[in-house]
């Protein structure tokens, strides 16, 4: 890493760059603020021009961060539980203490947080006194991902053995999508037609929610730890070591269609990506710190593709990426630097 003569591209190309003081584990941007959650538990909230708006410390560390739909409340999760943060109240602990790497806001602003094997849904109308509304029964393992279905009426819980969706007040799942193996992440398309999981066994599993029909793609170079649809619901990004893929879900869906393969220099589990909120552009960072941009509409199904725009070489692993609006990209690196690329 110590290439003294190499150009510090991140510094050269960034509109601004700051030192967050911790290895960023997650980054989330709202319309007015950027939250940087450090693996060591340092939370830093900054404005769009890099000014510090607030900070807090969670001694047990942080893994996840997500702003409420209205951008008013930040939800945080980590090995020792979940918290809220607001500009007015600062850090507020939620009454859960289990492992929390999954957070999901419903469109109505209810917050679901994982706590070991259960998920708890909170009313955060008044963040300082957030109240638990209901919780799911115990999953077979620690929960790895959460997603709201049916406009916030069902909460899908991913763990070892599949996905189960629960509704308030019922112990019996409204939906059971079984899978023999360990699920690491799930994603739902914005049109609510598809639910996709990325799995420890290096596969992607797809369920059509209407009838539970299943599709599977296996044979990724390593486990698929992250899956996410573009907000338009058409394109799915799946990581998987040195071969992330983008899959077209247009029309009748991905059946019979191959995904396009992106070429990165990935160490297993190290790829970071972020979908542009407007255009079907995905920014992907690999373990060498190179950030590239792909246009999903320019890819060919079933083919490997290097037709990307190279944005920057950060010279160290990128640990989080997030778009700030549709024309700026935030890049956070292992040493704690956070840079904004774009206007």
């Amino acid at each position: 890493m110590s290439q003294a003569t190499a150009v510090d591209e991140l510094r050269e190309t960034a509109t601004w760059i700051i030192d967050s003081g911790d290895a960023p584990a997650a980054m989330a941007a709202s319309a007015s603020a950027i939250a940087i959650a450090g693996a060591g538990g340092a939370l830093l909230v900054i404005s769009r021009d890099g000014r510090r708006l607030g900070s807090a410390a969670v001694p047990t560390g942080l893994l996840a961060a997500a702003w409420s739909p209205d951008g008013r409340v930040l939800a945080l999760g980590g090995p020792g539980g979940a918290q809220l943060w607001t500009a007015e109240d600062g850090l507020i602990s939620l009454p859960v203490s289990g492992w929390c790497s999954a957070l999901a806001w419903s469109v109505a602003g209810q917050l679901a947080v994982a706590s070991d094997r259960i998920a708890v849904v909170f009313d955060v109308t008044n963040p300082a006194s957030a109240t638990a509304l209901w919780q799911t029964p115990e999953a077979p393992s620690t929960i790895t991902a959460l997603a709201w279905l049916r406009a916030g009426r069902e909460l899908a819980v991913a763990a070892y053995g599949g996905v189960k969706a629960f509704t308030k007040g019922k112990l019996k799942p409204a939906r059971s999508l079984d899978y023999v193996g360990s699920l690491l992440d799930i994603a739902t398309s914005s049109d609510a037609r598809w639910l996709v999981s990325g799995n420890q066994d290096a596969s992607v599993h797809i369920w059509r929610l209407r009838d539970g029909a299943e599709l599977e793609m296996s044979g990724f170079p390593s486990k698929v730890a992250q899956v996410e649809f573009h907000p338009d619901g058409r394109w799915l990004f799946a990581d998987g070591g040195e071969q992330p893929t983008i899959w077209d879900f247009a029309g009748s869906g991905p059946g019979g269609r191959q995904p396009a393969m992106l070429e990165v220099n990935g160490r297993a589990g190290s790829t970071r990506f972020s979908w542009n909120p407007q255009a079907p552009l995905v920014a992907v960072a690999d373990s060498t710190g190179v950030v590239r941009l792909w246009d999903a509409t320019q890819l060919t199904a079933g083919e490997s593709d290097a037709a990307h725009v190279r944005l920057v070489g950060a010279m160290e692993p990128v640990t989080a990426l997030a778009w700030l609006g549709s024309d700026s990209l935030l890049v956070a690196t292992q040493s704690g630097r956070v840079a904004m690329l774009g206007p």
Binding site: D116, S141, T142, Y160, V180, G181, S182, N199, Q200, D201, S203
Partner: peptide, 8 residues
């Protein structure tokens, strides 16, 4: 807490 996963 021990969580044993079978590999598929």
């Amino acid at each position: 807490k021990e969580e044993i996963f079978e590999m598929n």
